[in-house]
Design a protein around this nucleic acid. Sequence first.
DNA 1: CATGCTTGTGTGACCGGTAACAGTGTGGCT
DNA 2: AGCCACACTGTTACCGGTCACACAAGCATG
Lengths: 336, 336
Amino acid sequence: MTATPPTRPGLRDVARLAGVSHQTVSRVFKNHPMVSPKTRDRVLAAAAQLDFRPNAAARALATGRSSTLGVVSFDTALHGPASIIAAIERHAREAGFFTGVAGLESAGRDTVAGAVERFRDQGVDGLIMIPGHVPPEEAVRHLPGDLPTVLLGPPAAVPTVEADHYRAPGEATRYLLGLGHRTVHHLPGPADWSEATERTRGWRDALVAAGAEVPDCAPGDWSARSGYERGRRLAADPDVTAVFAANDQIALGLLWAIHESGRRVPEDVSVIGFDDIPEAAFLTPPLTTVRQDFAALGRHCVELLLAWLADPGGAPPGRAGVVPSELVIRRSTGPA
Amino acid sequence: MTATPPTRPGLRDVARLAGVSHQTVSRVFKNHPMVSPKTRDRVLAAAAQLDFRPNAAARALATGRSSTLGVVSFDTALHGPASIIAAIERHAREAGFFTGVAGLESAGRDTVAGAVERFRDQGVDGLIMIPGHVPPEEAVRHLPGDLPTVLLGPPAAVPTVEADHYRAPGEATRYLLGLGHRTVHHLPGPADWSEATERTRGWRDALVAAGAEVPDCAPGDWSARSGYERGRRLAADPDVTAVFAANDQIALGLLWAIHESGRRVPEDVSVIGFDDIPEAAFLTPPLTTVRQDFAALGRHCVELLLAWLADPGGAPPGRAGVVPSELVIRRSTGPA
DNA sequence: CATGCTTGTGTGACCGGTAACAGTGTGGCT
DNA sequence: AGCCACACTGTTACCGGTCACACAAGCATG
């Protein structure tokens, strides 16, 4: 009739019940090979009976490893980052790692450094940085040298995973040119995001290579609002017949601006976006866009980082190959 | 010329340098009041000199608290959950807590139970559940009694934070009725999400109260695709002049289905969505919708949980008040 | 001047695992 | 039989903090 003690059972409790030493129990839970099957079964039975669960903090203290990954990202509520983080979390989980996320609102270097510091204090084993508008070199500068870190972005001083932000915009531009448009206008993303500038570069280079005029483009951010506001000026200009937007939100705002101005998509103006958000296929009209494989990006980050962690002595891995992006043709594009 | 030892400095190292005991150093870092300012300064100086950082694992082991919160959620890449999680993370961080996220893909109870188990093993101090399509009672059933948990959803056996999914749909429905529509059709969310069924109930009750006919509605999910597919049937029916969609993605698909069928929004059909995603104001046309305050929801979850954690002995807090949702009128609605 | 309380500090054990090393028993080999 | 290698298991210290408690000094009080 003794009440269950309020404290959770430990290694020693299991050992006592199974009639072995605590070390043997530890071995069983570490999957150490040098345990006889018979003993292992006895230990597991005892552990199950007591509902024993190893204490993560104690293990972390003893081993110096926490089985925790940190993710530093901006605007975690946006579709891109959110999808990547979801993929990271899933793969980390499957590999037995926990994931901590730090979402940063403002871009200041203090916040990056602060988030990294917090993760260090927490004792994460590795870090994945999704730097957003912090220039990658800048983000890297705040990294402690002793914490394995993978950067989602262009090649840098640490291992990186990179999405294709250059080739696909070129392809999109050439596609529009091939449809007979004299040139292609562009609505870029924020000038301080490398993703944005790469997309712009891909667009510009394709135009130059084709001998087409390179129109000016107005600066803005990733939002639909920005697409709408800049889009109104584009829509008012009868010379504009094709536009490549730096992401789908911008394209979406542009679509409305064009519609509002009385012109039609794709009859009067063709529009291409970037990302292929799930809604893109059901916009008015369904948006031709460049699909990014967010899940693959997240997965590669985790794989790279875990490979590094598995061999801490070894040289840090280089960079994974560029994850390709793919042009998806729908109904927002047509002949000039 | 001695090389810095590769091991990180500990409490004892700081103590030695400052000429005090390790316990005094511990007190300084716990902000224990019983330390003289002079000693405190000496300790802090020594700590700064060694770049000492307290080891989280050791602290967690000794105190039994990890300063970590767990969030269990479905479809973390969707705008709603992602926004809530971002808010949770921000507020937890400001209160000195880390946040771990488990994103679940499939709805099985095993995955809920599994995620909870993982968080227990990790030693989180508390849990926030965003159950999605798991019926709240079902989700609660898998919760260990000894882990403080807050549920985002309708009142249940644990403290809850609830968004308004009932009143605002009624308001939206009455608004459309007031515009002269004979009745309002509805595109519900998944039947197994309580958010969806509550919205449907709000719509239905408003219709009944107004003496309007209650049309059948086709089951579906939260996606734009589902809105489009179901929307085509609605668009083909000339009796349909007003539709309340269970979220903005559904509304977005519906918008395209209506446009494709040659009818116009809002001249021929009025559409109202739910959530007020950032893109809603720039759809074609800008969507009248119900705004949910995701940030407030996340914040309330954290506040409730932290209050509980601060007083573990005390009775668990009840539920926070219902966070209101607000009808935002744009251009997708008009007179019949 | 002894007594008591308050404030500040030090001592040792302890949290629950893991690492290193030291046994013990069994079998094969000469 | 005697020896050794090998497989398995136990002993002890240790990770880096915190806790409970003992202790020293300073000051007011009787």
